[in-house]
Design a protein around this nucleic acid. Sequence first.
DNA 1: CTCAATAATTAAACATTGTTCAATTATTAG
DNA 2: CTAATAATTGAACAATGTTTAATTATTGAG
Lengths: 201, 201
Amino acid sequence: MARRSDHSREELEELALRTARKIVESEGAQTLTARRLAGDIGYTPGTLYHLFGSMDGVIYRINAETLEKIKEEIAPLHKRKPAQDIPADIHKMAAAYINFAHTHRELWLLLFNTQSAEQPPAWYVEKIEESFSPLEEVMKPLYKKESELKLAARALWSAIHGICYLEITQKGPMRKSRQNATEMAKYLITSFLNGQDRAKA
Amino acid sequence: MARRSDHSREELEELALRTARKIVESEGAQTLTARRLAGDIGYTPGTLYHLFGSMDGVIYRINAETLEKIKEEIAPLHKRKPAQDIPADIHKMAAAYINFAHTHRELWLLLFNTQSAEQPPAWYVEKIEESFSPLEEVMKPLYKKESELKLAARALWSAIHGICYLEITQKGPMRKSRQNATEMAKYLITSFLNGQDRAKA
DNA sequence: CTCAATAATTAAACATTGTTCAATTATTAG
DNA sequence: CTAATAATTGAACAATGTTTAATTATTGAG
């Protein structure tokens, strides 16, 4: 029997999540099972249920970390100085997002390509909202009305995400290299921003 | 024992697929299991494996039908006469797509929100490609180069899909009514097309 | 018509899965 | 030291997709 004094509850949770992330990264989401994860940390499935309530609970925690990582990669691409090249920043963010999806393919798939029986907990929905904020921040100077900013930022980000998703899952009509998603995003963003300017002029 | 002479192989496949579709539509993808489907058509799981090879095989067949339906709803929205209002047609198509996703929610989720162990068969990949063709058709007059047409059409369609996907799965930052996805798509398309015109001028 | 060959269908079994829970073991408090 | 408490386990459940040998139905040849 694993001794409780080996780790505090927090340490044990961290150990479990770290190990779970490793399993997903190296062997894909399918291999993340209760018995496998429990075995890898030297405990039994019951302990995971004690800590996380369910396997979906584990997955939501991993996904929250992934959302955090994505945000961390994207947020710093916007230098706060005024008079910046906003389109350039947006292009950078989109490229970074697509790049993240490719370099952390399995984690990204766990985030967007799995279905859970449980409703997402409130703190998780919050995390999702936050992950969209960097783009909104960058685009802020382009809009007078808060409502239009929100609409524009979310539409654009969803669009970039859609391009990325269909490429990675192969559920869309693009079977070639990663060049395509980045290229498509670039094209979309350029046209979109052009159109925005024009509507304002 | 179900008697083979009750249906020809084709009839039996059709019966199975029709029943499977009904199960998904009314109770969601989770309830489409081998035993359930077999029971509903008066056979046993083994027969399904005889017909479709695997449960993924069944799902690919249903999804192919769904892709067909989507195409049928979208394709006729483009009247072939010249001097048409192309942007209007694109808006109609996007709205129809999002509407389909809502009115056939479960089938649409089966198509885009499930993960299969098997690689999609060639005929299925073909179906995916085809489903994108109507938009490409409409946008054709806007581009001289075939390559740019393909890039633009796929980027735009993926974008619309992304907006739709994040709304329906609630994996993006939109928790309100269906109005949002349609509204976002409208906004995106308008800006995108504006930007395209401008780049050409 | 008979009966062997063939094809479809079934029943039962397997290996996995997530999950629950009473029993067991370790830790803490008094 | 002992009683209360908390963590951990092991075993069990129900359900899943899938395989396969045995069974049943159909067909075709003599």
